[in-house]
Design a protein around this nucleic acid. Structure first.
Length: 288
DNA sequence: AATACATTCAACCGCGCGGAG
DNA sequence: ACTCCGCGCGGTTGAATGTAT
């Protein structure tokens, strides 16, 4: 049985939206709100597909859309986030208020991807799949190939505590992520947790992982963490990080899975090259 | 001025996911 | 456990526009 089409394509307007159609859709959504996209064309009196209405509203008609050229700060953030997340445009757009995933995707494809290719011609591949190499191999190869892209993969952990810097003080945010926890977080929220509003400027400590000291002392020996902190992963701002390690390797990311709140993703951040590298899950088998 | 070619970006398309029943 | 449905996502297309010849 085939998939039911989103609408009857016969006799439905397609292509560029007219000013009148924009006005009808805007007014309808302002009055009745978003959602039920399949019903909106009929209710609003538009001869359009519901999907087309949704796209037009989200990408163009929403009042909070920011139009115009991307600033340097926005470009920089897009590049960093693309490094981290790959082609997950909706997630990237979630970090850029007023920008849509479609706009960012177009901007990347027409501008930034070319620049990235010029800067690192060997790294123009799309987001690579999660590797099965050993962590040691990963660390070694990452030094030679400084800009791999991570694909987040979940790891199970038992608990984490994150401290975030805010308004000059330290606010603590505690979350217990044990098996069968039902709390959920969006992808955007988890990126917020990890990156802060200023992208890598936050300071935090993540602790109580059942990693048995696997990661820090053995796989990232350059990091100055003593035995008592063997189960503690740190992430800091760049100045702090440069003071911490001669080779500028630092555990940089921990992702809470949106689907499984008891899982996290781990990657390493190379602060010299701003590149990320993920960790082979097999090394954690039986450890977590 | 006319034409060809390149670039941009709004819009479309198909697929996958999650919730409801 | 299964199907159906609505929604959102990422890849792709093609019309509009810009630039070169």
């Amino acid at each position: 049985m085939g998939r039911k089409p989103c609408c009857d394509k016969e006799g439905v307007n397609r292509g560029t939206w007219s000013v009148i159609e924009d006005g009808i859709l805007s007014n309808f959504i302002k009055l009745h709100g978003e959602g039920k996209w399949r019903d909106i064309p009929k209710r609003a009196g538009l001869n359009r597909c519901g999907k087309s209405c949704r796209l037009r509203w989200l990408n163009y008609l929403r009042p909070d859309i920011k139009r115009g050229n991307f600033s340097e700060a926005e470009e920089d953030l897009i590049i960093r986030l693309h490094n981290l997340l790959g082609n997950r445009w909706s997630l990237i757009a979630g970090r850029l208020p007023g920008r849509t995933d479609n706009e960012i995707k177009n901007f990347w494809n027409t501008n930034l991807s070319k620049r990235a290719h010029q800067d690192h011609p060997q790294n123009n591949k799309p987001c690579h799949p999660f590797t099965t190499k050993s962590p040691t191999t990963l660390l070694t190869s990452a030094h030679h190939q400084p800009s791999p892209v991570i694909r987040a993969k979940p790891f199970r952990c038992t608990k984490k505590i994150i401290f975030t810097e805010s308004n000059g003080g330290i606010n603590s945010v505690t979350r217990e992520t044990q098996n069968n926890t039902t709390a959920s977080t969006s992808d955007t929220a988890r990126v917020d947790d990890l990156m802060g509003n200023d992208c890598f400027s936050s300071y935090g400590v993540i602790e109580d992982f059942d990693f048995d000291g696997l990661l820090i002392p053995q796989q990232v020996p350059e990091i100055n963490i003593d035995d008592e902190e063997a189960n503690e992963l740190k992430w800091c701002d760049e100045d702090e990080a440069n003071n911490l390690t001669h080779q500028n390797w630092l555990v940089g990311q921990l992702f809470e899975s949106a689907e499984h709140n008891d899982d996290v993703d781990i990657s390493f951040l190379n602060l010299q090259s701003d590149s990320f590298m993920d960790l082979d899950p097999s090394c954690l088998d039986g450890k977590v």
